[in-house]
Design a protein around this nucleic acid. Sequence first.
DNA 1: TGGGGCGTTTGATCCACGTCAACCCGCTTG
DNA 2: CAAGCGGGTTGACGTGGATCAAACGCCCCA
Lengths: 247, 247
Amino acid sequence: MPQRAVVPITAEGLKTACSQCNLQELCLPFGMSDGDIDQLDGLVGARRKVKRHQHLYRVGDTFEAIFAVRTGSFKTDVLLEDGREQVTGFQMSGEIIGLDGISTDAHTCNAVALEDSDVCIIPFANLETLSREVESLQHQFHKVMSREIVRVHGVMMLLGSMRAEERLAAFLINMSQRFTARGFSAAEFHLRMTREEIGSYLGLKLETVSRAFSRFQENGLIKVQQKHIRIVNIGGLKALLSHLPSV
Amino acid sequence: MPQRAVVPITAEGLKTACSQCNLQELCLPFGMSDGDIDQLDGLVGARRKVKRHQHLYRVGDTFEAIFAVRTGSFKTDVLLEDGREQVTGFQMSGEIIGLDGISTDAHTCNAVALEDSDVCIIPFANLETLSREVESLQHQFHKVMSREIVRVHGVMMLLGSMRAEERLAAFLINMSQRFTARGFSAAEFHLRMTREEIGSYLGLKLETVSRAFSRFQENGLIKVQQKHIRIVNIGGLKALLSHLPSV
DNA sequence: TGGGGCGTTTGATCCACGTCAACCCGCTTG
DNA sequence: CAAGCGGGTTGACGTGGATCAAACGCCCCA
């Protein structure tokens, strides 16, 4: 199968078919009719494998496509000159990466694979063309962008107004929900990111994250074994969010 | 001039014309050809006045339109059950409010006028229809959404990784740039929001904001008189961001 | 013209989280 | 099998910003 010119060496020539993909309900096609989804098959160019710790794109890369995570997971981050890192998000299968690039035709953050991963390449010019013809695609794409804005508003709330344990509880609940949506256990999962990356995302140092995990375990809320998490008392975690602290 | 059914009582029947508007370069029409902009005139429904401290919309309101600020300014915020507020943004003339509503067809934050203000109502269904026909509008709208994503990534950096004075310096520089873009002085401006609102946006308490202002004044970076700010040493402010703290 | 209230400033004290450091564990590599 | 290392945990201590509290100034309005 011939490789396309736009596709870097790391890309697979494999043609992707949204119509055949089992991530439909989590991804761009969500809510679209079968007929409309068939049209997407022509849009999604190819797949690309990204190995653990490799960049999918970097700050400054020219923007040509957005990506849908097929397998694996990613973090996106932005760096300060002095090296401080802020993780802006963790992305799992079905989620869209790269929307930051539309604004200036260049990426404004880095996207790094947390494990060996695999994305669908969605050339942005083609997406705009097709979404002028397919109303449901246009609408879905707008929802995807809006959802990202809403997500980040939530993170701002978390960073600006919550204390460490609230932040971590919110993070765990969020992870649990996303694993559930993907057919995995809500109560038991494997975190792909380090304590430092979690901390960066939550505006905390890794030691604080580690201590909060330990505290949760002492209080019987979760069971921690390195990156493996088991949620024992989801209600207790949720209570940390709606709380008065000492009830 | 007849009022339209969709328009609430607070709305003015005044027809808006993007083609005549002097905010073009700051607003949705940015980068569009005159001919394309003429098409927007049919899209933008009406204007609406919002008095100081009144809501433009609230969490839960059904989403029907996005808004372009014509005059005045707004804050958007999200509240926690226990009353904690997180300001998610301040919007000035030409900026678009309401993108958070697309995701679920209901608004997920509140928009409140900081002073007597005036917005253009852009019915979203019409915007989608027209942007299927006018490529430049489609593209501009995508850029507006992406720019919002990039902005909030910056705020995450600020909330997650910067100390109080860095946050406030970044805030002042950003305000200065936005005033400049609107033809106002880069060095002297009037803040529309309270110390508490600034603090909420920056993840700080109002006392901390106040102290940081005072410190900046002591160091000859700015001159503060209540809400009136004069930037004396913009380079000094910028240095606070790229810094080593004690140089 | 005077009073009341909101927003702001400033000081004194506290504490949640950061910093620094030691140590542990599981994996990799020679 | 040892050595090295990246990631994680835990403890002791320091500090930036929160909290609590008092007072001030501007503005609105009677």
